[in-house]
């Protein structure tokens, strides 16, 4: 789903169009639920987080202020799930990346709009295990890089290098997938 279609759906949602809400859920429900499920490991809690996020989006579609909608809602899902994991109330936060930076990420939209999910899953699965584990512990485990280093009993510098190298590999995998 392209950026302009997302924005069109959000405008329709703002005017109370339930069909637009349904279409947005059809496209992003699996992303929000999947991120929440991966973090919380509980289908019930993941459903609660997904429901909470989409209902807030229905009543306040203006919470999204531009950039890649997929990247934004994935970040919202991560934050809300980590809040639950840390036993605080589910709440919708503003994305932490400022708007000026969100505009940098045009290629992010490609990941959510154009890439087949299987291609993405294969790219992540094919990372060297040490890089994948460091990235996933930070992203899905909600750990800081310092905590990842402690948990893996690995020097901080090594963890930084592994995370950077892994994300760089994923960026290259996107290039290859787009070139086809």
């Amino acid at each position: 789903m392209s950026r302009s279609i997302d924005e069109g759906l959000l405008e329709r949602i703002a005017s109370g169009d339930a069909a637009a809400f349904s279409a947005l859920y059809d496209h992003y429900g699996d992303l929000v639920y999947g991120v929440a499920h991966r973090i919380l490991r509980s289908p019930e809690q993941a459903q609660d987080v997904t429901q909470s996020i989409f209902l807030k989006l229905w009543s306040r579609p203006g919470l999204f202020s531009g950039g890649s909608f997929g990247a934004w809602i994935a970040r919202v899902a991560r934050n809300a799930s980590l809040d639950v994991l840390r036993s605080s109330a589910v709440r919708m936060r503003e994305p932490e990346i400022p708007q000026t930076l969100a505009a940098l990420g045009d290629l992010e939209e490609t990941v959510f709009a154009d890439l087949d999910r299987d291609v993405v899953v294969r790219a992540v699965a094919s990372l060297p295990e040490s890089e994948r584990v460091a990235i996933e512990q930070a992203y899905f485990g909600g750990l800081t890089y310092r905590e990842v280093a402690e948990r893996l009993d690995t020097p901080l510098g090594t963890i930084k290098t592994r995370i950077r190298a892994g994300l760089q590999r994923l960026r290259s995998a996107l290039n290859e997938a787009v070139r086809g």
């Binding site: 639920y33 991120v35 997929g70 290629l107 990941v111 959510f112 960026r171």
Partner: peptide, 16 residues
């Protein structure tokens, strides 16, 4: 890093 992070998030997508 935004692209890599997007790939990580998308890899978790799962039908509710």
């Amino acid at each position: 890093a935004q692209v890599g992070t997007a790939m990580v998030a998308r890899s978790a997508a799962e039908a509710p």
